[in-house]
Each structure stands twice: as structure tokens, then as C-alpha cells.
Simulated assay, not measured.
Amino acid sequence: MSTQAELVVDARCGTGESPVWSAAEQALYWVDIPGRALHRWSPDGHRHWTGEEMLACIAPRADAPGQWIAGMESGLFSIEPQDGGTLAATPLAQVAHARPGMRFNDGRCDRQGRFWAGTMLMDMGAGAHVGRLYRHDGYGQLPSLQLEALIVPNGLAFSPDGRTMYLSDSHPSVQAIWAFDYDTATGTPTNRRLFVDMNPLPGRPDGAAVDADGCYWICGNDAGLVHRFTPQGKLDRSLEVPVKKPAMCAFGGPKLDTLFVTSIRPGGDLSDQPLAGGVFALRPGTQGIAEPAFGS
């Protein structure tokens, strides 16, 4: 086992997020939020498509191969790559943001195929508790508001049995990860409790994944680390990536034993991290779980 991070794509994403492994294609998809782009990498090469709104989180559609549900700026959309490098986007549901200047952020499907996604104010410096967490059950329905008063909702993940939901807030004033009991029949989280206080640990909590052992992997933004926590919230290990701002991780590869990590390329001097914004691969010696498609 080697835990040395390997560069997969020197993508130079402004904010690389929401990596999703497609087993059918043996390919990794992810988004660049400010670049308004959907990216795809496989051993055959790297492509990307751009749209008219920023897109922040994606999940494949069970009923439409090649199409994705995406949380964007004004709401949830169905997106599909087009010839010529563009994205076709069909509105699924709009949301009433708490104030102007907001967009969707982190999101994923639960084990039953419901799509969960949070919203945030793009001006993080304001520290405004206007972020919300939504659940979208299916076509023809409006997203259901589940939580309010968040700043930067992040770190969504579900335990292997689907009965625990994880959520973080990555704003510097919060830096907390919570666990919830999750009713898989109704899609209802209850019993919110602190899972990990990230304040004394290196890095702010960002995007996350869960492995087959039920351990929770989360990117330590600003610290160049990916942390693994046991189901009891104990820090088990921390793996390094060669950039300061890893953003989200996902398991992939033929055996789901590769941990892909997207990252952020900030402005300013990058002489100490020229690969910022790239996608990296780690082989941590554990396997992930196939992510459900929306509507599955």
C-alpha cells in the first residue's frame, strides 16, 4: 500500500468539487464551481464542458444515462454534456434563497437515491447564517427544506447502512462535523450531535466520503490533508496531498480502492503549490462504496 498522492489531472480548477466515480464508464467526473464546468477523466483522457451557471454538486440520474442532477446557482438542474464542449441544463426545481448572491454547494445522494444539497452565501467573509440544506426526492417535486442557519454546509455523507447522515460547516467560525440518525424510509435526519470538532485539528472540514468500514474521510482545507475518522469520531489517520486546499474526496477505480481528491486553486503566489486545482489519487488500503444514482 502506498499513500503517496499521485497527480491524476493538472486541471487547475478554481474550486474542484463533487468527484463522482462512474463504474459503467470507469471514469471520474467532477465540477469546477467558478469555471461553470463539468469535468471527466478516464485513462483515455480528460474533457470538460461549460454551462451558463456555476455548478457545485452532481449525481448521476438513474433513469437517464449520461445525464446528471446538479445543484447550481438558482436551483437544481438536469445537465447533459453536448458536442462542442457545452452543457445543456434543464431546470428541475428552483429554490428561494435567503438573500441574493447565494448558490448551491456540497451535495450527494443518500443510499436510497434522494439528492441532498446545501446552499451558501458566496461572500464567505460575511459569515452569514443563511445557508440551508435541502432534500430532493424526485422529479416533479420541490426540494424539501431540512435545515437552516448554516454558513457553508459541506461534508455530506451517509454510513454504509444509510442510517447515519454526516454534515459539516466549513466556515472558520464553525469548523464542526455533525452526525444525525437517518430514517431511510422517510429521508428524515434527527438527533443532531457533534461528531468531530475540527477547531483543534489541522484544516477546515470540507467535502467527504465514507468507506466500506464506515469510516468518514474529509478534506482538511488549508492544511493539505485528508483525515479519516472512525464511526466513533476518533481521528484514525491523515494523508497528505501536495496542495493546501483539498476540497472533496471520492472512492473510485475498478476496485473502489483509490481515493480521488479534488482541490482549489486560489489566487496569488502559487510557487509553493503549482499543482493547486488538480485532482490527486491516494491508495489508502481501504475500499469505498458505490454511490447511488438519483432516483435509484
Score class of each variant (00 low, 15 high):
7 L>F: 10
7 L>I: 14
7 L>N: 00
7 L>T: 12
7 L>W: 02
8 V>K: 00
8 V>L: 14
8 V>A: 11
8 V>Q: 05
8 V>F: 07
8 V>N: 06
8 V>T: 06
8 V>S: 10
9 V>T: 03
9 V>L: 08
9 V>I: 15
10 D>E: 15
10 D>A: 13
10 D>I: 03
10 D>H: 10
11 A>D: 05
12 R>C: 02
12 R>G: 03
12 R>E: 01
12 R>S: 01
12 R>F: 00
12 R>V: 11
13 C>T: 10
13 C>V: 01
13 C>K: 02
13 C>D: 14
14 G>W: 02
14 G>L: 02
14 G>D: 05
14 G>F: 00
15 T>S: 13
15 T>I: 15
15 T>C: 14
15 T>K: 15
16 G>N: 05
16 G>Q: 03
16 G>H: 08
16 G>S: 06
17 E>A: 09
17 E>H: 03
17 E>S: 01
17 E>L: 10
17 E>R: 08
17 E>W: 07
18 S>C: 14
18 S>G: 15
18 S>E: 12
18 S>T: 11
18 S>I: 04
19 P>K: 11
19 P>L: 11
19 P>R: 11
19 P>G: 11
19 P>T: 02
19 P>M: 10
19 P>A: 13
19 P>W: 05
20 V>G: 06
20 V>T: 03
20 V>S: 04
20 V>D: 04
21 W>N: 01
21 W>R: 08
21 W>E: 00
22 S>V: 02
22 S>C: 15
23 A>P: 14
23 A>W: 02
23 A>R: 14
23 A>D: 15
23 A>K: 13
24 A>S: 15
24 A>I: 07
24 A>N: 14
25 E>H: 08
25 E>W: 07
25 E>L: 12
25 E>F: 04
26 Q>D: 13
26 Q>N: 15
26 Q>S: 15
26 Q>H: 15
26 Q>M: 08
26 Q>C: 10
26 Q>P: 01
27 A>D: 08
27 A>I: 04
27 A>W: 07
27 A>G: 10
27 A>M: 03
27 A>N: 04
28 L>H: 04
28 L>S: 10
28 L>M: 12
28 L>A: 01
28 L>V: 09
28 L>C: 02
29 Y>H: 13
29 Y>A: 03
29 Y>C: 06
29 Y>P: 07
30 W>S: 05
30 W>K: 07
30 W>L: 12
30 W>T: 02
30 W>N: 00
30 W>V: 10
31 V>D: 08
31 V>P: 07
31 V>K: 10
31 V>A: 12
31 V>Y: 06
31 V>H: 11
32 D>M: 07
32 D>H: 00
33 I>Q: 06
33 I>P: 02
34 P>L: 13
34 P>C: 06
34 P>K: 12
35 G>A: 14
35 G>L: 13
35 G>V: 01
36 R>V: 03
36 R>Y: 05
36 R>G: 03
36 R>F: 05
36 R>M: 12
36 R>H: 13
37 A>V: 11
37 A>G: 12
37 A>L: 04
37 A>E: 08
37 A>D: 06
37 A>Q: 07
38 L>G: 02
38 L>E: 10
38 L>R: 07
38 L>I: 07
38 L>H: 09
39 H>G: 06
39 H>E: 06
39 H>P: 04
39 H>F: 13
39 H>C: 14
